[in-house]
């Protein structure tokens, strides 16, 4: 029975009005207007200048850098997520709860601290700083540092979608396949993966959005070398601080577009595969 048909549950008209105006107003103020601002500022000087702003070599190299970082970090976290989900979802062992909470740890650490820990390990003053310099290997202020910092902040995304799902699904199907003589990889490909594919995609989606949009962590390890170690969010920062508003917002609009596509895809997955994702939805 629908809640709305129950007279005892009907909120008074004034309350309904206040909740509607308050809720929608809050979202308009904090979500819709910022989005609109990006679009308006980006096109403030017309469409041609918008394109011109994006056609800057530094911006293009930032796009490449962002894609490169995500292309390395996301698959690695994906493999990690699947491995962790296999270990945590299909087996019972001691210390599981503590290890599980460690996987979520990156979410409660400031991105700035996430970047800084790699400076402490690989930076000039860091543990391996001297050795790395002797061997002319650059980690911080270079691509590997950006990748490491990005992996740190996006590490939990895939794992936290898959673990509860695989725990819930249990091991019966896999055990049945095992009895029929299937090997480990065969079991994974034919039984487990089809069962988790939508949740996996969901996790990848969120992981990717964060990986491409991360600012604090990469800002600390990038060194802000134009055209070399700048990702898109860092490029927004640089352009904004140069008061180049059209270019800053044009670059920001790319990221905002990415966010909207992510949201649309996420909503589609939630709507289409609600039953599979129900467990993991925050």
């Amino acid at each position: 029975m629908d809640r709305r048909d129950r007279p005892a549950l009907r909120d008074p008209r004034w309350a309904r009005g206040a909740i509607f105006v308050g809720g929608i107003g809050f979202l308009v103020l904090f979500v819709v207007l910022p989005l609109a601002t990006v679009a308006v500022e980006a096109f403030a000087k017309g469409f041609e200048l918008y394109l011109h702003a994006l056609n800057d070599p530094d911006t293009i190299s930032a796009i490449q850098m962002t894609l490169t970082v995500a292309a390395i970090a996301v698959p690695l976290n994906c493999i990690f997520g699947v491995a962790a989900a296999w270990a945590f979802g299909k087996f019972e062992f001691r210390g599981k709860t503590i290890l599980l909470s460690l996987i979520d740890l990156p979410f409660s650490v400031s991105p700035v601290i996430a970047g800084m820990v790699f400076l402490l390990v690989f930076g000039l003053q860091g543990w391996f700083g001297g050795w790395l310099r002797e061997h002319h290997i650059k980690i911080v202020f270079a691509l590997p540092g950006l990748v490491l910092a990005t992996i740190f902040v996006t590490l939990p995304f895939v794992a936290r979608e898959l673990i509860p799902l695989m725990q819930e699904q249990g091991t019966e199907e896999e055990e049945a396949a095992r009895m029929l003589g299937a090997g480990g990889f065969r079991i994974f490909w034919s039984i487990t993966l089809p069962n988790i594919k939508w949740a996996l995609l969901y996790g990848v989606l969120l992981c990717n959005a964060r990986a491409m949009g991360e600012f604090g962590a990469v800002s600390v390890v990038s060194g802000h070398i134009r055209g070399l170690t700048n990702t898109l969010p860092l490029q927004v920062d640089i352009l904004y601080n140069e008061y180049n508003m059209v270019a800053a917002f044009a670059t920001a609009s790319l990221l905002a577009g990415l966010a909207l596509i992510t949201l649309a895809a996420k909503s589609f997955l939630e709507w289409r595969y609600a039953d599979q994702l129900a467990l993991t939805r925050r």
Partner: peptide, 14 residues
């Protein structure tokens, strides 16, 4: 969910 998806730098400038 937009604040989860929108990069913080973009949120900051806008």
């Amino acid at each position: 969910d937009l604040p989860f998806a929108l990069p913080t730098a973009v949120a900051g400038v806008s």
